[in-house]
Design a protein around this nucleic acid. Structure first.
Lengths: 108, 108
DNA sequence: GCAAATTAATGATTTATTCAAG
DNA sequence: CTTGAATAAATCATTAATTTGC
């Protein structure tokens, strides 16, 4: 419960000193080592991502099968949205505009 | 997924004809233009760097607090790789074993 | 009820990848 | 181009839950 609370409040990859603290706190309840805390966060983070990915996956499969929509933005990790969406519409930003203008090597 | 596969296999700044090819391939799944592919690679490259920088940054913070090593000595420093952790049983991998011996920073 | 068998969850280890430094 | 370090992803191993046949 303590670890999940920490995870919920944003802890993902605690550094050595954080791990120290957490371990100290948990050791009240029984024998535990820093590596156990380390592994817990590794595994928990990975498995949360996995769950999210599965959810999105089935969602997009659904969309795909019903609407023939492309399933862009397949999964997003907490800190880094991975697949950007194709822009289907209008008005590129000035910067983008400039890039595309000065770069005929990247045609539409 | 396709783009990440390409990125993983080394594509970073595709040239015009590469972008053309990629765009053609992706257009199977929906509307997409060359600039979207171009931007994707720009952004993905940048964000991967960002992530790494964050990681290194927190690592440096840690070292500072524990060892007071200057940045440029860090990678050469003999002691103080931080993670992976000690194994307690059976034939640990050479890698982990070596690290755990030299890494007191996340003790049990 | 109650073990054996099966499935799910969790802990631990290995592998693959990323960027930057040399 | 190679190497080091961090760590995400995949996998292996073990423990907990659940199901099944009696």
């Amino acid at each position: 419960m303590i670890l999940e609370e920490m995870y919920r409040s944003g802890v993902r990859t605690p550094n050595a000193s954080q791990i120290q603290q957490i371990t100290a706190r948990l050791s009240y309840y029984g024998r535990i080592e820093g590596k156990n805390v380390f592994y817990w966060f590794q595994n928990h983070k990975a498995r949360e991502r996995q769950k999210l990915r599965r959810r999105l996956c089935s969602h997009y499969q659904l969309l795909y099968s019903t609407n023939s929509l492309p399933h862009h933005q397949f999964y997003c990790s907490q800190e880094a949205p991975v697949f950007p969406l194709p822009l289907h519409h209008a008005t590129p930003s000035p910067f983008l505009h400039q890039v595309s203008n000065s770069s005929p090597s990247v045609p539409s």
